[in-house]
Computed example of a mutant assay.
Amino acid sequence: MLFQEASINDAVRLGMYETDPVHGIRQMMARIGRQLEADRIVLAEEQGDFLHLTYRWNAEGILPLGDDFQPVPRSDMRPVFARFAKESSFSIPDMDIYWQENPDVSPHIPGMKRLDRLSKSDQLTGLLNRRGFKESLASLPAGRCIAFIFGDLNGLKETNDTLGHEAGDQLICSAAEVFRHVGHEGSIFRMGGDEFLMMQEIKREEDAAHLLERLQAHFEAAKISIALGCTTAATPINNIDDVLKHADALMYRQKLEQHRQRQDF
């Protein structure tokens, strides 16, 4: 928390140093959003008896809010202001429950449920994104063995640089289709630009190796170069970061081996 507070203060100073105040605010929001790994950052301004969402930032792959938000009457925000009167920041673990308890605070926007669903999806591939992964992970029942396969495309930057970003996007979408062919819809995630994650329940730990081999064979058949790393964990998973770090380390080991093979060739 101390690190985040110092980082946010630095971001505020960054914004204040800009000669163009609007550009400074947008710079500040972008830095805060990246530091907090947020989906969105929204700044509201009071204008008379209403709050207007004047500035908005969203992470890559997150659906922008657009201009559908209506001004919110200040009186509707009493529960929020009451919390801020007691503490400088607070967290809402479950927005659905919070909205039920404070119906006046629920967003003044049409199709909010659809927006929430889209915010969990990657716009390019239609796969779930990091937020979708976190929610899927939380919904896993206890006592199950789960295989995690982390994949990192080879050559995406070179494709973008030599053939253009449309070709790079097509490579990403083709990789997503291979994952879909082997895995189950709703258990495959685009974690970043060229990073994918597949999460699948298995009966025995040794089944993970067969799953990895099958996935690798389909990528070779599609002539898509990708490095893959696989690990397993039993639910409930107390530290998913450790699990993903292990899969990432195995993936990186294969990527180095693929690089050596290309050099030898």
Results as ranks from 00 to 15, higher is better:
residue 117 R to H: 11
residue 103 P to Q: 11
residue 82 A to P: 01
residue 84 F to L: 15
residue 66 G to W: 01
residue 91 S to D: 06
residue 110 P to E: 13
residue 93 P to G: 03
residue 89 S to I: 00
residue 112 M to S: 10
residue 75 S to N: 10
residue 88 S to A: 12
residue 64 P to L: 09
residue 117 R to D: 09
residue 85 A to G: 09
residue 82 A to D: 14
residue 85 A to H: 08
residue 82 A to K: 03
residue 102 N to I: 06
residue 112 M to W: 12
residue 80 V to K: 01
residue 126 G to N: 05
residue 112 M to Q: 10
residue 76 D to K: 11
residue 117 R to N: 06
residue 92 I to A: 02
residue 98 Y to Q: 01
residue 111 G to Y: 09
residue 73 P to A: 07
residue 127 L to P: 06
residue 84 F to K: 04
residue 75 S to T: 13
residue 104 D to S: 13
residue 116 D to N: 10
residue 72 V to A: 14
residue 97 I to K: 09
residue 109 I to Y: 11
residue 80 V to N: 04
residue 63 L to R: 03
residue 78 R to T: 12
residue 119 S to K: 12
residue 113 K to R: 11
residue 74 R to M: 15
residue 119 S to D: 08
residue 121 S to F: 03
residue 101 E to S: 09
residue 86 K to F: 04
residue 66 G to R: 03
residue 87 E to H: 04
residue 126 G to E: 02
residue 75 S to F: 13
residue 122 D to K: 01
residue 78 R to W: 10
residue 70 Q to G: 02
residue 108 H to L: 14
residue 66 G to H: 04
residue 110 P to W: 00
residue 119 S to R: 13
residue 115 L to T: 04
residue 99 W to E: 07
residue 75 S to M: 13
residue 100 Q to K: 12
residue 89 S to C: 05
residue 90 F to A: 06
residue 121 S to Q: 14
residue 93 P to W: 00
residue 100 Q to W: 00
residue 96 D to P: 00
residue 86 K to M: 12
residue 118 L to W: 00
residue 66 G to V: 05
residue 103 P to M: 09
residue 73 P to D: 05
residue 123 Q to D: 06
residue 124 L to P: 01
residue 74 R to L: 15
residue 64 P to R: 06
residue 95 M to L: 13
residue 106 S to F: 05
residue 84 F to W: 09
residue 76 D to A: 15
residue 101 E to M: 14
residue 90 F to H: 00
residue 99 W to I: 01
residue 108 H to F: 09
residue 83 R to W: 02
residue 119 S to Y: 00
residue 88 S to M: 08
residue 121 S to W: 01
residue 99 W to T: 02
residue 78 R to Q: 15
residue 96 D to H: 06
residue 98 Y to D: 04
residue 101 E to R: 14
residue 111 G to R: 11
residue 67 D to S: 15
residue 72 V to N: 06
residue 66 G to Y: 01
residue 82 A to C: 06
residue 83 R to F: 05
residue 81 F to I: 00
residue 118 L to P: 00
residue 113 K to L: 10
residue 68 D to E: 13
residue 105 V to M: 08
residue 78 R to V: 11
residue 118 L to F: 07
residue 65 L to P: 02
residue 120 K to M: 10
residue 89 S to R: 09
residue 93 P to R: 03
residue 87 E to Q: 11
residue 100 Q to F: 03
residue 73 P to W: 13
residue 114 R to A: 08
residue 116 D to T: 12
residue 111 G to L: 07
residue 89 S to K: 08
residue 98 Y to V: 08
residue 63 L to I: 13
residue 102 N to G: 04
residue 74 R to Q: 14
residue 83 R to T: 09
residue 127 L to N: 03
residue 97 I to C: 02
residue 122 D to M: 05
residue 104 D to Y: 09
residue 114 R to Q: 09
residue 114 R to H: 07
residue 109 I to N: 04
residue 96 D to T: 12
residue 70 Q to L: 15
residue 99 W to Q: 05
residue 93 P to A: 06
residue 86 K to E: 13
residue 72 V to M: 15
residue 126 G to M: 07
residue 79 P to M: 04
residue 67 D to T: 15
residue 119 S to F: 00
residue 63 L to D: 04
residue 86 K to T: 08
